[in-house]
């Protein structure tokens, strides 16, 4: 199948340190990919580079066959490339309903409207309630985000991304900080995603990775060292070494 999302030879260094070192990756519609790797491997940087939040030193990004390397972050979102943030980025003074409504309005070209209020727009409210209901946030939809628990904020972060109806969804550690009791909601939301959506999820919870992904990509020190099926990943000697090595380095540094 024609890839919906393609990265070719992406490179980025910070002060001589190659944080993304010649990364190539492609995804087809419907792909469920988990991107794993030790802390500091460059996973978040990879997301920042492909979404246009960071500029690569070289390499190419394509969405639906179109090269978007010269297009800014906004243009890439409009082409269907949507991300969530590892560290929640929400508007403290706004409610979950407002967050999702803003995303829905933006997607449907109505975020610039000078009149009306989303509470009076039935189609927007229907979508808001459905999405927040799915993630268990409906009761809290009119509370300020600063008043709700961090785990619920993580869920809202996902809701905002989903409300944009992406073609390619990049989730940066969606379950980090979500209590065990709530990860089921994330999983359910992921299971309910449109079948033709391509999803790349960065995640440390291996149980979640194995249930979700049909393909696992391992990043270590900025390079892809494994790209294959979940059943093979734990057996791969390079992957084992990368994880052991990173723990050795971590204890060394500490």
């Amino acid at each position: 199948m024609q890839p919906i999302f393609e990265v070719r030879n992406l490179k980025r260094a910070f002060g001589g340190l190659a944080v993304t070192n010649d990364v190539s990756l492609s995804m087809a519609p419907g792909d469920r990919v988990a991107l794993i790797g030790p802390n500091g491997a460059g996973k978040t940087t990879f997301v920042n580079l492909v979404t246009g939040n960071l500029k690569p030193d070289s390499g190419e990004v394509r969405i639906g066959g179109e090269a978007v390397t010269g297009i800014d972050a906004i243009g890439r979102v409009r082409r269907g490339l949507v991300r969530s943030f590892q560290v929640t980025r929400l508007f403290a003074d706004m409610t979950p309903a407002e967050h999702v409504a803003l995303a829905v309005l933006q997607r449907s070209g109505r975020a610039g409207r000078l009149f009306g209020n989303f509470l009076g727009m039935p189609d927007v409210m229907a979508e808001v309630e459905e999405l927040l209901g799915k993630l268990g946030l409906k009761e809290l939809m009119h509370r300020k985000v600063s008043e709700i628990a961090y785990g619920q904020q993580r869920l809202l972060e996902i809701a905002v991304a989903l409300a944009l109806k992406p073609r390619v969804l990049l989730l940066d550690e969606p379950a980090a900080g979500v209590p065990q009791s709530d990860t089921g909601r994330i999983e359910q939301a992921l299971a309910d995603l449109p079948a033709d959506l391509a999803v790349l999820m960065i995640e440390h919870d291996m149980d979640l990775v194995f249930r979700f992904a049909k393909r696992v990509v391992v990043l270590a020190a900025g390079a892809i060292i494994f790209d294959g099926s979940p059943s093979d990943v734990t057996k791969d000697p390079r992957v084992r070494e990368a994880y052991l090595g990173s723990y050795a380095n971590a204890s060394h540094a500490a």
Binding site: N53, I74, F91, M94, Q106
Partner: peptide, 17 residues
Amino acid sequence: MLCRGIKEDPIRIRSMG
């Protein structure tokens, strides 16, 4: 509402397109 969002976090607004 969009403007309130921009005031709080323009980067977040950008990643909403």
